Amino acid sequence: MLSLDKVFDAQTVLKSIIRETNVVKTYGIAPDCDLYLKPENLQITGSFKVRGSAYKISQLSAEEKAKGVIACSAGNHAQGVALAATKNGIKSLICLPDSAPISKVEATKGYGAEVCLVEGVYDDAYNKAIELKEKEGYTFVHPFDDEDVIAGQGTIALEVLNDLDNIDAIVVPVGGGGLISGIAYTAKHIRPSVKVYGVQMTGAPSMYNSIHDGKIETLDTVQTVADGIAVKRPGDNTFEIVKKYVDDIALVSEDEVSSAILALIEKQKMIAEGAGAASVAAVMFNKFDLKGKRVVCIVSGGNIDVTSLSRVIDRGLMNSGRSASLLIELIDKPGQLKEISSIIADCGGNVTGVHYEKGNTESINGCFLRIEMETRDNNHVKTIKNALREAGFRTTKG
């Protein structure tokens, strides 16, 4: 049974395995509240997942350890199980969805695990892992729906409460619910006044839907940049714990998470994956009433693929108005580009790209000019658009 004693035992067991990540105060990310980050992206393996998996493996019998362990994961749990198993001299086999970032697949192998790639998402990898468990006799280390795993994740709450007094709220990313279950259970038993809020993606709202409808539901598909929380169905245990101890769950969009990742990079010099930044996105975009509150966001992981990070940064820049694209319809004659460039420069914008496009325009001599710009924010983009229109140019898109 999950208990506070089990969470404290996990804290003792994990002292020689994990890195205790001290909370960090933020500046400029969420000015309406006193915001702190719990940087589990700096954890060994780059994610909180090592806590739960390492504690689970520590509780196995000698016979279970001899047969080895199997797990399924979108990547972070895989690395946690691989590291914990290798430290204990245990064989590990990890089933990962074939959509998992290459960096996570290679990191899992690097920690000593054998990897089995499965077509589909996390739930497909889970089914394959259960099949192999029955066939080979491995012990299955569940990524979230296991009381030992949940207890391991609960050690995060112990550290947060030890680091900070007078916390009003803890905001936690939610996939299957193991992280928020451990944190909510622990926090509510030690300091009941602390609010615990969960965050899911609009493209993977399994726990959100289940809690709001009062029963466990399974999504047909999930699609999100936050692969670490792309789960079709919450766990049986985690659903009950979340229902009892979590105060509310909200959804954030891809664009909001992209903006949060960019803000963490620029304001905190911190790299977070999509799942890790979901909690920060919820605070940035006012998903909960946190004005004037002391808030801790769990940045659950930092294992983002470099190519994905590049795309996310570009998207974040566009969403925040730091970069913009304008499509201008004009008459094809000399001097147009010079005049447009001068207007943009006078407004303080910086032209980074120009592309000439022929298209269907009202005039037979018409054309389109696509301008890429660096700008300060969305208001700056509006100022430039207005200046161009006042000069007689027609912006049709961007």
Rank of each mutant, 00 (worst) to 15 (best):
A78W: 02
I70N: 07
A30T: 06
Q79F: 00
I70D: 01
I44F: 11
N22H: 15
K25A: 12
Y36E: 13
R19I: 14
A78P: 05
K49F: 03
L42M: 12
T21Q: 10
A71S: 12
I29A: 12
R19S: 15
K56E: 03
I17Y: 01
K67F: 01
N88S: 12
G68R: 05
Q59Y: 00
A66G: 04
T12C: 08
I18R: 05
N22M: 13
G80C: 09
L37P: 04
K15E: 15
R51E: 07
T86G: 00
K91I: 12
Q79S: 11
I70L: 01
A54K: 04
I29L: 09
A66C: 10
T45H: 06
S103E: 14
G52N: 09
L96Q: 03
Q59N: 09
K67D: 11
I29E: 14
A66H: 04
K87I: 08
A71I: 04
K38S: 01
S103C: 15
I18A: 02
A84C: 13
L60E: 04
A10D: 00
Q79A: 05
A74N: 13
A54T: 00
N76P: 15
L14I: 01
Y55R: 10
G46V: 06
S61F: 06
N22K: 15
Y27R: 09
C95S: 00
I94L: 14
L14A: 02
L35M: 15
A100R: 11
E20N: 04
D34F: 02
R51H: 07
Y55H: 00
V69H: 10
L60Y: 04
V50H: 02
N41G: 08
D32Y: 15
Q59A: 05
Y55Q: 03
S47Y: 01
I102E: 12
G80A: 00
S16L: 03
Y55E: 05
I17A: 03
K56P: 06
S73Q: 03
C33T: 07
V81K: 05
L93H: 04
S99R: 13
A30R: 13
S58C: 10
E40Q: 01
V50M: 09
K65F: 11
A78I: 08
C95N: 02
Q79K: 06
E64G: 09
P101C: 11
S16H: 08
A84H: 01
I57E: 00
L14G: 02
K67M: 11
A66S: 15
G46E: 07
G80Y: 03
A74F: 11
F48V: 07
L60H: 00
E64W: 06
L83E: 05
A62K: 14
T45A: 05
E63W: 10
C95G: 04
A84Q: 10
D34Q: 07
E64H: 03
L35V: 11
A85T: 13
